[in-house]
């Protein structure tokens, strides 16, 4: 906790802010100078999704140091929420349904 209370999170926040400003505004400012070729466009389509998946997977399918892969009930809850989304196509249902599912699973099985 002590590191989180000091300068590190604020520095991290500034770094994230700069990344957001760079990606959002760069084309608005310099778009007339830089054309966007088709293969770059296609790479740009896959990168954000891959980045999001790379954050999600270790959260629901974690490895523990020195042990290797461990099972977490979050995986079941996440799979249930995916099914809910496929049925309803509603992001709010996914978020609330998955959260409640984990809560129930942890209460009964945890």
């Amino acid at each position: 906790m002590s590191t989180l209370d000091n300068w590190y999170p604020y520095l991290a926040i500034v770094f994230v802010m700069v990344s957001v400003v760079l990606t959002r505004a760069s084309y608005w400012l310099f778009g007339h100078l830089v054309p966007l070729p088709d293969n770059v466009r296609s790479a740009l389509r896959y990168a954000p999704v891959a980045g999001l998946v790379a954050i999600i997977v270790p959260e629901i399918m974690p490895w523990e140091a020195g042990i290797g892969p461990v099972f977490d009930l979050k995986l079941i809850a996440a799979l249930l929420s995916i099914v809910l989304f496929q049925v309803t196509r509603n992001a709010v249902v996914l978020i609330i349904g998955g959260t409640v599912a984990l809560w129930i699973l942890r209460t009964w099985l945890g």
Binding site: V18, V20, Y27, L36, R41
Partner: peptide, 18 residues
């Protein structure tokens, strides 16, 4: 790394910007 991932998940805005 935090900076790099921030850029990566926001790359879609380059397409929006274009």
């Amino acid at each position: 790394l935090i900076f790099a991932i921030g850029c990566i998940v926001n790359l879609r805005f380059l397409i929006f910007g274009a």
